[in-house]
Design a protein around this nucleic acid. Structure first.
Length: 218
DNA sequence: CACCAGGCAAGTA
DNA sequence: TACTTGCATGGT
């Protein structure tokens, strides 16, 4: 089996085992975007509490968030960790959308995907993974999200070298699969699901993992 | 107690 | 270019 076939097969195995994951958890585009920033190197449980604070005060709105000071916002998202930095990141995003799209997410997502991706990457605090989460889960547009679990799974199965890059991993998926927004959505969600259960940092061997019969290098 | 979580940018050499 | 470090709460 070549590399592309293995990439397709991993999706099949995971989907067969776990079924659809119904991502992103969140009721609105803006909530997805906030979650994408807040979950940087942070467990989702801590993010939920922060989003819960914003929701309970009915603050999930570009205008209302813009009115908060950075420090007020930071206190509300405390539970998500790195809260001072993340408050600045959210403010940077709000400034971007206000300046470039008159504060309209709808206008922002009218941009061509590659173009929007490049612009989001310019925002300080929004890196490649957060950018792709915003586009895929916030905008429902086709791009592939790579995260630490993706890296562990690909490298431990010998599909990418130990020293690889975000773009190299992303291209592997995009070149191996047909472009399908819903499938890209499920695939990343499934990688996170299996990663959480079977692919922790300190445990390279995955007993009981649905991918355990796929060739490993570790 | 130690370790980890759905990253990113800035600093150093 | 290629490492290293800071950011920080909360669950296991």
């Amino acid at each position: 089996m070549n590399t592309s076939d293995r990439v397709k097969n991993i999706y099949k195995l995971l989907y067969k085992k776990y079924g659809p994951q119904s991502w992103w958890p969140g009721d609105s585009q803006l909530e997805c975007i906030l979650g994408a920033i807040l979950t940087q190197n942070t467990s989702w449980l801590n993010v939920e509490k922060a989003i819960g604070n914003l929701k309970s005060l009915d603050l999930i709105s570009i205008e209302k968030l813009t009115l908060l000071t950075t420090n007020e916002l930071a206190q509300l998202i405390r539970s998500s960790g790195y809260f001072n930095q993340k408050a600045i990141k959210i403010k940077n995003f709000l400034a971007f959308i206000s300046e470039s799209y008159e504060g309209s997410l709808e206008k922002m997502f009218e941009e061509e995907v590659g173009e929007l991706r490049n612009k989001l990457l310019q925002i300080k605090g929004i890196g490649p993974e957060t950018t792709d989460c915003i586009i895929l889960y916030g905008g429902n547009k086709p791009t592939f999200v790579v995260d630490v679990y993706t890296y562990r799974i690909l490298s431990r199965h010998g599909l990418v070298p130990e020293q690889t890059s975000y773009n190299e991993m992303q291209e592997l998926f995009i070149d191996s699969l047909t472009v399908d927004t819903q499938m890209f959505n499920e695939y990343h969600a499934l990688l996170v699901r299996v990663g959480k259960e079977h692919c922790k940092r300190s445990k390279p061997i995955c007993a009981g993992c649905p991918l355990e019969n796929d060739p490993h290098t570790v």
